[in-house]
């Protein structure tokens, strides 16, 4: 199988069986959910708050849009409780663009998730950008036919989310800051952990693998498969603080499968050109000449100013359950 099935829950309520002309058809299988994420690879998923932004994102080459009530930068400034976006806005976006549409629900908020699924979004992001609804548990995502994406700061986070049913991982940075340093740190950390696992696997040391599995609070099965693959068993995108083509290229060069851009595009003064430039730099990340061409399309004076992570009152990446 091209896509790893590791961590699948066989009694998943999200699997729907039906028949068409006496042929059995299956929806919501691990392959169909993880497969959806594979179609996003090498692409840019852009945060939008209305139809106009969604259309700009589509025209600029976004592979999908993520609908929010407020961009992470504005969530930070508004304070208060950040919840899922208005149903009307999500429905309007669904009717206006042809690319996949994702939306965020609060961590642990299975009712918000169900609403998003009913509206018909293509993927649900259980996200720390919104205020967590449950401080001790994430959603059991195997209950849904629609795939989910979750954030992760380290390998244990990522593998636990996959075992709960996440079909895609985004490596957490610090959203709404315009600063990629946290995303870079966490991607390096996950990469280093996986490199170490691969070495142990190649030495055939299962006892060491099960010890690590216990340390990072994940199952032996998924740790062993990750060690064998030398990468996460699902698609892994970078997120948090990406604002320029060069940022996108940097994160792709660290081995991510694609990127999420939050505030970086629509908090800038040149969203259409910038979005296009980020798309180009994501595809040609390893080609400095083309990244330069992309970087020329934007003006640094129009970039979002950004926030120094050291001075933040709210660290979104640290929100939600630790297990």
């Amino acid at each position: 199988m091209t896509i790893s099935q590791v961590g699948s829950y066989s009694a998943s309520k999200g699997i729907k069986v039906s028949t068409v002309n006496s042929k059995e058809i299956l929806s919501g299988t691990t392959l169909i959910k993880r497969g959806f994420a594979h179609m996003q690879k090498h692409g840019v998923i852009m945060d939008v708050t209305n139809v106009e932004q969604a259309q700009i994102a589509e025209d600029a080459g976004a592979v999908a849009v993520m609908v929010l009530d407020k961009l992470p930068y504005d969530v930070r400034h508004a304070g208060g409780v950040a919840r899922t976006a208005s149903v009307k806005v999500i429905e309007a976006v669904l009717d206006s663009v042809s690319i996949p549409i994702m939306a965020k629900c609060r961590i642990g908020h299975s009712s918000e998730a169900s609403i998003l699924v009913e509206i018909g979004v293509d993927m649900v992001d259980e996200s720390e950008v919104l205020s967590p609804a449950d401080e001790s548990r994430h959603i059991w995502k195997w209950n849904y036919t629609t795939p989910f994406v979750n954030g992760a700061k380290n390998l244990g986070d990522a593998l636990r989310r996959i075992e709960e049913g996440a079909a895609m991982i985004r490596t957490k940075g610090e959203p709404g800051t315009g600063d990629v340093s946290e995303a870079v740190t966490h991607i390096r950390m996950i990469n280093n952990e996986m490199k170490k696992l691969k070495g142990i696997h190649d030495n055939g040391d299962n006892q060491e693998l099960i010890k690590i599995a216990r340390e990072i609070r994940s199952s032996f099965e998924i740790v062993k498969e990750t060690a064998r693959l030398g990468r996460l068993p699902v698609v892994n995108f970078a997120a948090g603080g990406i604002s320029t083509p060069a940022d996108a290229a940097l994160l792709m060069s660290l081995g991510c499968d694609g990127i999420f851009v939050g505030s970086g595009i629509f908090k800038a003064e040149d969203p259409l050109e910038r979005a296009k430039a980020v798309v180009i730099a994501t595809t040609y990340f390893d080609d400095p000449k083309t990244v330069l061409e992309a970087q020329k399309m934007i003006d640094e004076r129009k970039s979002m100013l950004g926030l120094d992570i050291k001075n933040l009152d709210l660290k979104m990446q640290e929100r939600g359950p630790t297990i």
Binding site: V20, K23, E24, I25, L26, S27, G28, T29, L31, I32, G35, F36, M39, P100, V117, G120, V121, D122, M123, T145, T146, P147
Partner: peptide, 26 residues
């Protein structure tokens, strides 16, 4: 349809056979 209607099922493909697993994603 959209992603929740994405599916897998066996296909009959001429020159290949009637047991090809078709993976349909949007």
């Amino acid at each position: 349809g959209r992603q929740h209607d994405s599916f897998e099922s066996n296909l009959n493909i001429s020159g290949i056979g009637s047991d090809f697993r078709g993976i349909f994603i949007r």
